[in-house]
Simulated assay, not measured.
Amino acid sequence: MKKLFISQPMRGKSDEEILKEREHAIQKAKELIGEEVEVLDTFFDDFDSNAKPLEYLARSIEYLSKADVAYFAQGWQEARGCRIEHECAVEYGIDRIE
């Protein structure tokens, strides 16, 4: 079973919208990979209200390091965190679904 990392733009979206997009990404990844996946949970809700975006990104990259494949959701090219995650995936040879 492959470990799946999901990169998705989150700014300006409700938790409900984010989680719905994640579910779509999981189903699409399963179809494309052809097997079940272990989803690395990168929907963080344990930061305090003063957390900086870079703190979220740092933890995301930690999870990305454990992934076999990274799924980049629609709009990733316009989100700076997603672009950085993508660059890391490319540079470190993590398979990608775009």
Rank of each mutant, 00 (worst) to 15 (best):
L40A: 04
P53H: 00
I94N: 00
C88F: 15
W76T: 01
L32D: 02
M10R: 13
F43Q: 06
M1I: 01
I94H: 05
I84Y: 06
K20C: 04
V90A: 06
D46H: 14
S14Y: 15
L64E: 01
T42D: 07
Q77N: 13
E36Y: 03
Q27W: 09
N50L: 14
T42W: 05
I33R: 02
E55Y: 11
F47N: 12
S7T: 04
R11K: 13
K3D: 09
E62R: 14
L40W: 10
I84F: 14
H24E: 04
A70T: 00
A70S: 07
S7V: 03
A25W: 00
L40E: 02
C82F: 14
E78I: 07
H24W: 13
M1A: 07
V69G: 06
H24F: 08
Y56T: 09
D41L: 11
L54W: 15
E85C: 13
A58M: 10
I33H: 00
F44H: 03
Y56W: 14
V39D: 07
G34I: 02
S14F: 10
A67W: 08
I97C: 11
L57T: 05
L4Y: 03
F47V: 03
E62S: 12
A73I: 03
M10P: 05
H24M: 07
C82Q: 08
E36N: 14
E55N: 10
G81K: 12
D15V: 09
D41K: 15
E16G: 04
G93P: 05
L40Y: 05
Q27A: 09
F43D: 08
F43S: 09
D48P: 15
A29V: 04
G12M: 07
P9A: 02
D41Y: 06
W76P: 02
G34Y: 05
F5C: 03
K30G: 00
A70L: 10
K3L: 01
E85A: 12
D45L: 04
T42K: 02
P53I: 02
R22D: 04
E78Q: 14
N50R: 10
R11E: 15
R22A: 07
M10I: 12
A58R: 15
E78P: 01
D45R: 15
I94G: 00
G34R: 13
I97W: 04
C88Q: 10
E17A: 13
A70M: 07
Y56S: 13
M10H: 04
E87Y: 10
E23D: 09
E36M: 07
E17P: 13
L19P: 05
R80N: 13
K66I: 02
G12R: 06
E55R: 08
E78T: 10
M1T: 09
E16A: 07
K52L: 14
V90F: 02
I33S: 03
E21V: 06
S7D: 05
